[in-house]
Amino acid sequence: MDRVAQKGWWRKDLLGIQDLSREEIEIILDTAESFKEISTREIKKVPTLRGKTIVHLFYEPSTRTRTSFEIAAKRLSADAVNISVSTSSVVKGETLLDTARNLQAMELDVLVIRHAAAGTPHMLAEVLPASVINAGDGFREHPTQALLDMLTVRERRGTLEGLRLTIVGDIAHSRVARSNIYGFRTMGAKVRVVGPATMIPVGVEELGVEVFYDLKEGIREADVIMMLRIQKERLQGAFFPSEREYARFFGLTLEALKEARPDVLIMHPGPMNRGVEIAPEVADGPYSVILDQVTNGVAVRMAVLYLLTGGARIGVAH
């Protein structure tokens, strides 16, 4: 922790990965690594954030991310409050800004927000003195997901420098894809994207990624394959004809996996559609690090909460 404190973390908010430097990402990953041990203790709690108030404001359904944030906050002894869309003032027609101002009036320290509209965390960060953490805004970014993905790969490979990451699926509508493209590229990895052209956004090459329309070609020599969830309800019929056809051309099967390196890591941000974008044998297979991702999610969120609330600055150690 002392090392982190010396390096200094100055950001009030975590809105995305795109504007983070390599050093900043490393600070978060190092901090997360040091926090992992807490979750293995018999009493999984430290007093680091005692007295801090954290509000999780979720305008979109989420089980994994919200629970992960909540557990992270509790392991650091913060007071965490969850507000989800069905119980909030949204139904009463209150604007987002008014909701945020009301929360601020209750002296919150951190606002964790998930919202279907991109840019919402920026809007709040600008008006609130509290720290704002983006837990997913529209198609734009999901920074803590990319951080936990990077942590997971770094643990297995020691570094991200020079690795090849292939992201497969609906790149156009994926905040996970965007955050990981920024993060892995900043850390020195090479990034490819694979999917039908309907799901590859215009201009994606300008982000420095290589585009493939053939899964086997796209995962050749890959060190890491990240499968994205296919949102069947929204996309079928418009972006791809059927699940059956999608699974056939873009689903990760043991057969397709033969093209990848023998020590390839398989990731998925969840929740998975088994048998669609990922075959069950692959999801449960030896290369899958999908559950490590979830474990690391808690550590990364603890690290982010710690750094943003000034833990490093005021020298509070666990």
């Binding site: 795109q18 991109a118 840019g119 198609f139 215009v202 300008e206």
Partner: peptide, 15 residues
């Protein structure tokens, strides 16, 4: 506008 900026901002584009 649909393009690099809409991609980065995660906003739906009008081509």
């Amino acid at each position: 506008n649909e393009g690099l900026v809409s991609l980065e901002l995660g906003l739906r584009g009008i081509p």
